[in-house]
């Protein structure tokens, strides 16, 4: 589990993978947990198809620039994002990635503690493949002891309020995915030891 005064988190993936939704939910949950927060979405000129980045910072102290030089936690959801986020990696960075979306061979050069999460395959086996990003969100929350999981649940529900009206069963699915992600992260550590 990460322990910092200020947390710097970078989530990176393909446009359409839900990067900005994840980042937004996380930022909101951090704010609702009583922390100062800053979240900057960042992508190129393309409406679709570029690497999508979410810069999130939170903690008790002041936040300077909305971007940061090095990430405490880097969450990578596609191979292209590995290269794009290299400048943000340092040896203290916790490198969280979806083993089903990333070929570990591509991570050979990454010198950081890695936390592989099989989010897509577990989501597919136990729930539905599309909630892989919520599984990851659960794993992220587990790593960040500072964020109250109830607040993540609340932010998640607010974020998808419109969709829940049409498909009420989604709510339960998302909450299960979040819980699954938390447990995966905890198991990941157990396996390491």
């Amino acid at each position: 589990m990460l322990k910092r005064e200020m947390y710097k988190i970078l989530i990176a993936g393909e446009g359409g993978q839900g990067i900005q939704s994840m980042a937004h939910i996380l930022a909101k949950a951090a704010y609702e947990s009583g922390l100062n927060v800053s979240y900057l979405p960042n992508y190129g000129v393309e409406q679709r198809g570029g690497v999508s980045l979410g810069f999130i910072q939170f903690g008790k102290g002041p936040i300077g620039f909305p971007k940061f030089a090095k990430a405490d936690l880097l969450v990578v959801l596609c191979d292209r994002a590995i290269e794009r986020t290299k400048p943000y990696v340092q040896k203290e960075t916790l490198y969280l990635y979806d083993t089903d979306l990333i070929s570990s061979i591509n991570l050979a050069e990454i010198r950081a503690e890695k936390l592989p999460i099989p989010a897509t395959s577990v989501a597919s086996a136990k729930l539905e493949p599309k909630v892989f990003n919520i599984v990851l969100l659960g794993a992220i929350t587990a790593e960040l002891g500072i964020i109250n999981i109830k607040m993540v649940e609340k932010a998640l529900t607010e974020n998808f309020a419109d969709k829940y009206i049409l498909k009420p069963q989604l709510k339960n699915l998302n909450l299960k995915a979040l819980d699954l992600g938390q447990r995966l992260a905890q198991e990941g550590y157990k396996n390491d030891k």
Partner: peptide, 9 residues
């Protein structure tokens, strides 16, 4: 754009 795209309290 960083200033206006950033979400903050």
């Amino acid at each position: 754009g960083y200033l206006t795209k950033t979400l903050s309290p």
